[in-house]
């Protein structure tokens, strides 16, 4: 598998590490009422059969974390964006 790093271009799978679903957002509240949001964030996943936004880390390269949209059935890469974004903007669609 070839993974396109937003900084370095397309590189081999062996240069990267994987973290999982990139659509989950860490809750900002630590109030008891936010329990289900925390459980969702840490544990629950859509685990889609098809396109999936996911976190990758160019661990043996530029060390950037990025979001990759990849089909979990065909492994086809559909989109990519730096996790932080150039301006902190969220690049997920």
């Amino acid at each position: 598998m070839r993974i396109p790093c937003p900084n370095c271009g397309e590189r081999g799978l062996e240069e990267f590490s994987y973290r999982g679903d990139a659509t989950v957002t860490r809750p900002t509240s630590i109030e008891p009422s936010s329990e289900s949001a925390w459980l969702d964030y840490v544990y629950l996943r859509d685990n889609p059969y098809g396109p999936h936004w996911e976190f990758w880390h160019h661990i043996s390269g530029c060390r950037a974390w990025f979001r990759l949209k990849r089909d979990t059935v065909t492994h086809k890469v559909l989109a990519v964006a730096l996790a932080a974004g150039v301006d902190g903007e969220d690049h997920r669609s």
């Binding site: 999982g20 679903d21 969702d40 544990y43 629950l44 996943r45 859509d46 685990n47 889609p48 059969y49 979990t72």
Partner: peptide, 18 residues
Amino acid sequence: GNSSRLASMAGLRLPIES
């Protein structure tokens, strides 16, 4: 392997990745 897909038919999300 496909638990999430079936569970989603019942509106459930699971603590599972395939």
